[in-house]
Design a protein around this nucleic acid. Structure first.
Lengths: 368, 368
DNA sequence: ACGACTATTGAATCGGGCG
DNA sequence: GCGCCCGATTCAATAGTCG
């Protein structure tokens, strides 16, 4: 619990501190209508069963921590409603909240949040450039997480730095999907043994965008599930104040050390380097899905010597050869490799047109 | 309501038809455990209150001027629970459902779906290449929609054509974010006045991926909010059967015309890449029985570190390890498991050849 | 120093068939 | 239903090693 009552009896905020305790108790001890933004990364309730191994037989380090264990959806929903209610009380009337989650919990959290009176402004997708694959090949690669951005109420007018986000996005309006890598390399905090200090550390780039977009300098940002303190680190760097709440001694310790080493940026260095985008890869399957060519259509080689038929999954078939546009091209030519995009043509009004024209069209739309 | 009772009184499915009626009533009139896949694009606009029905089919009264947020969510939730329950009843035990929505409704739908007993397999983000901008610059561009893919229950084993989706994505595992343009151009259906026939027509590319990935040829796909029939159009094109339910005469009319003009792909083009899991199992003993390898022959591990001797019953022996090709491989490597077929090689004229070559030979003979 | 190659790792609801 | 056992399955980004 926080000692946050001053001499006159009015409550004050414990700024730039990491508070030990249950986040609901701590938030209830803070004054109402006092915080500008809440960023929350609650437990996801993953419900993992057995062990999982990679194809090379190495074991996957699962998130099986005690704090992620809930008996049922009902218990998880009660937990969500409780912390969301406490969070909403301390938010200023024009304050906002961000919550991050995966399909395991985000629908529960989103429903609880709407029921509590929050007003959803956007849902934002964090598209991971380097997610963990689905090793058994039984599902889609789980390549994103979902964030919900919501105001305290329908009437509230939360901070939104439209121009700053637009600038971050090379001058075009920021979209609801954010393409960012997961947290690894030097940014990933290690404990004394060299193991990762926290199983689910979020990248600073994600918080950078949240904080730039929805707070002003000097604002107070509270994180009820502080962990190793990414929210606090980025808040300090960007000249905002933070309040962190964390139950685990080990996480608090790492976070404190981390944040004390951070230097606040001068205004100039707040500008972020925008990542260069390589030309987006276009799978040939998209040409089929989008109906630019249809299953059953014929393709012809540039040299006119071969032809092949398109199948519904974007592979080709020619005599006994099946596979991608590249594989079939290489096989027919007896070559070690082949760029199918420039090798194959389709016919339109008797004219042979390279399929690369279709890829150009798709790329133009992707970057538009 | 559907006339789907034949002379013997047993119910039959009204295949490749568009049925007029409320989707809950119609689904309740269909036989249980009869449909392979459901694709649902339910209304998400809460202003549709006037058109919503409670589970008891009573119509919800028109909007009150002082409409209360919680009440409207409650009505929407009842509607969601009702149609999801009806949908779940008619799904086969190994059937699956796809639901698409935006932040206005997807958290409600996702929660209702989990509460109804569906088991979420993935959430999938449709990332629009060409979304409508946020004209007033007060929010992020709403550039995506969310789809939930779920099995009928935790135990069910829905169809998942992993290899076909991988092929569609140029040979890398399909991710949970799908980059596709919105429906416009020639694909966008117009009415007699040249206006768009439906406000939220989904692109065929989206359904192509859903249907290729989670159904097989001949499967039955039901769409309870059929609209202008994108689900039916792609189902027909890909050799699947559909059942559409739609209350609006104008949409049914457009959909019927649209689908009748569609041509089904030829059989060969519908074939997609399949997984090895579908291939017949070959015991290693057959290799010995057929004399392809003899008792006493040596096998060598792929990495060259181990060797083993073949015994007459098709087991291996290496030092004190005895057992199947898989068991001995795993034991020698200290691994939790091992695919002996790809781990062991035999020598022919000094060259190491994987024993999987012998299995391929046997399989070829089996299918010949 | 640099390139080539190998090893490690990340919020994961990660099998199916037969006895 | 349970236990056993076959045998299928990964992408991108670091970090480390060797020459």
């Amino acid at each position: 619990m926080v000692k946050n009552t001053n001499k006159t009896g009015s409550k004050t905020l414990p700024l730039n501190q990491i508070i030990d305790g249950d986040c609901i108790d701590v938030m209830n001890s803070l004054p109402e209508n006092s915080v500008d933004l809440i960023f929350a990364d609650p437990p996801y309730n993953l419900q993992l069963k057995g062990e999982l191994h990679r194809p090379d037989n190495s074991k996957v380090d699962a998130v099986d921590d005690h704090w992620d264990q809930f008996d049922s959806f009902k218990v998880y929903d009660e937990f969500s409603r409780a912390w969301l209610q406490a969070a909403r009380r301390i938010l200023k009337p024009n304050g906002a909240i961000w919550v991050i989650g995966s399909y395991h919990n985000i629908f529960r959290v989103g429903t609880a949040l709407q029921d509590a009176g929050f007003w959803v402004l956007n849902d934002v997708i964090w598209r991971k450039t380097n997610p963990m694959p689905n090793f058994r090949g039984v599902r889609l690669t789980n390549a994103h997480e979902t964030m919900i951005w919501a105001g305290k109420s329908e009437k509230s007018k939360p901070t939104f730095n439209y121009e700053a986000l637009k600038a971050l996005n090379d001058g075009v309006q920021m979209r609801s999907d954010w393409i960012l890598p997961i947290c690894n390399g030097n940014e990933r905090l290690k404990d004394e043994n060299g193991d990762k200090a926290h199983p689910t550390q979020k990248p600073e780039s994600l918080l950078h965008r949240v904080i730039i977009g929805s707070t002003n300098e000097g604002d107070v940002i509270l994180d009820p599930f502080f962990g190793t303190g990414t929210t606090g680190a980025v808040a300090k760097k960007l000249g905002r104040k933070f309040i962190g709440i964390e139950r685990e001694e080990a996480y608090r310790k790492v976070a404190k050390k981390r944040i004390s080493a951070i230097k606040e940026c001068d205004a100039e260095s707040l500008k972020v380097s925008t990542s260069k985008r390589a030309e987006p890869r276009v799978p040939f399957g998209q040409v089929v899905e989008r109906g630019m060519l249809k299953p059953g259509d014929q393709l012809y080689s540039l040299n006119g010597r071969h032809s092949a038929k398109i199948r519904a999954d974007g592979t080709l078939i020619a005599h006994d050869q099946r596979g991608s546009i590249h594989q079939v091209g290489a096989a027919l030519e007896g070559a070690p490799s082949c760029n199918g995009w420039t090798y194959w043509c389709f016919k339109k009004r008797g004219e042979a047109i390279p399929i690369d024209m279709l890829r150009k069209k798709i790329r133009a739309e992707m970057t538009a």
